[in-house]
């Protein structure tokens, strides 16, 4: 009886241990791919059209979903913000509220989440499929380094697109907020813009927002690339990897956002 229990517990513990080791191993493998992507980046810049092509696929393809989402997020922010602010008689501050919420948090974070779902999954699936159909092997056999030719351009494309997409998100969001606050609710237009101008700081708000989105760009793109590269070469393996890209990217973005925000508010 006792033996049975000890046996069960030890099996449980070793199971947990195995999983931990597997996770840590993957983390290490991911970090290694990241380093290699940086080391073999030369070609992505020397032959910038390779990166440009990926910017088109990851960035431009995500444009529509980002603009539409941003518009609705901005409108909802204005509605909710007005509802609360007017109780305190400061409904002109609605412009600041919308702008700060977007620039500091929602712009980078929601963009990263949408990016993970739209572009991240596409990257994972594409690379997973290239691996499954031996395209990466074929490249290796031609003496062309797949990290330089496939991984690095996609990595830089993601890192470059993300801040641009996030800025666009914030801009469209502000426009959405404006449309709800000024023409619809009737907040004073001059107050809306001037309060925003006076209270949004370039250094503390905008630059910090851009820093966040660059970090998210590195994280989301790297996770998508690694999952694709690491996927077992089967249909099932690729589909699991795609799901993992979304889950891991989303959690990573939210966790990183907390860490970055706490640093930015303290420093």
């Amino acid at each position: 009886m006792i033996n049975l229990i000890i046996n069960k517990i030890s099996r449980l513990l070793s199971g947990i241990g195995h999983r931990m080791i597997a996770r840590i191993w993957r983390l290490g493998a991911g970090a290694r791919l990241f380093m290699l992507a940086i080391i073999y980046s030369g070609e992505s810049f020397k032959r910038f059209h390779l990166t440009l092509r990926e910017i088109y696929f990851t960035g431009v393809m995500s444009l529509l979903i980002i603009i539409v989402s941003a518009f609705f997020v901005g409108m909802v922010l204005a509605l909710q913000g007005y509802n609360t602010l007017q109780k305190y008689g400061s409904s002109e501050a609605i412009g600041v509220l919308v702008a700060l919420a977007l620039v500091r948090e929602l712009g980078p974070v929601v963009t990263a989440l949408l990016f993970a779902g739209r572009a991240g999954t596409a990257i994972t699936a594409e690379i997973g499929l290239m691996k499954t159909t031996e395209q990466l092997s074929a490249m290796e056999m031609m003496a062309v380094n797949p990290i330089a030719r496939v991984v690095a351009p996609r990595f830089w494309a993601g890192v470059i697109s993300m801040p641009i997409l996030a800025s666009l998100f914030s801009m469209v969001g502000v426009l959405g907020g404006y449309l709800v606050a000024v023409p619809l609710i009737g907040v004073d237009e001059g107050a809306f813009w001037s309060q925003m101008q006076a209270n949004v700081d370039v250094r503390a708000d905008i630059i910090n927002g851009v820093i966040k989105s660059v970090v998210f760009g590195v994280a989301c793109t790297m996770i998508a690339l690694f999952e694709g590269f690491d996927a077992p070469p089967t249909a099932e393996g690729v589909s699991h990897a795609t799901t993992r890209t979304v889950v891991i990217s989303s959690l990573t973005v939210l966790g990183l956002d907390f860490v970055l925000t706490s640093f930015m508010l303290v420093v």
Binding site: L129, M130, T133, E134, Q135, S137, A138, M139, E140, M141, M142, A143
Partner: peptide
């Protein structure tokens, strides 16, 4: 490898 060429069993064309 620059001196080698290989035809893969399933082609492995870049899709």
């Amino acid at each position: 490898r620059r001196t080698m060429g290989m035809l893969f069993q399933h082609g492995a064309l870049f899709t």
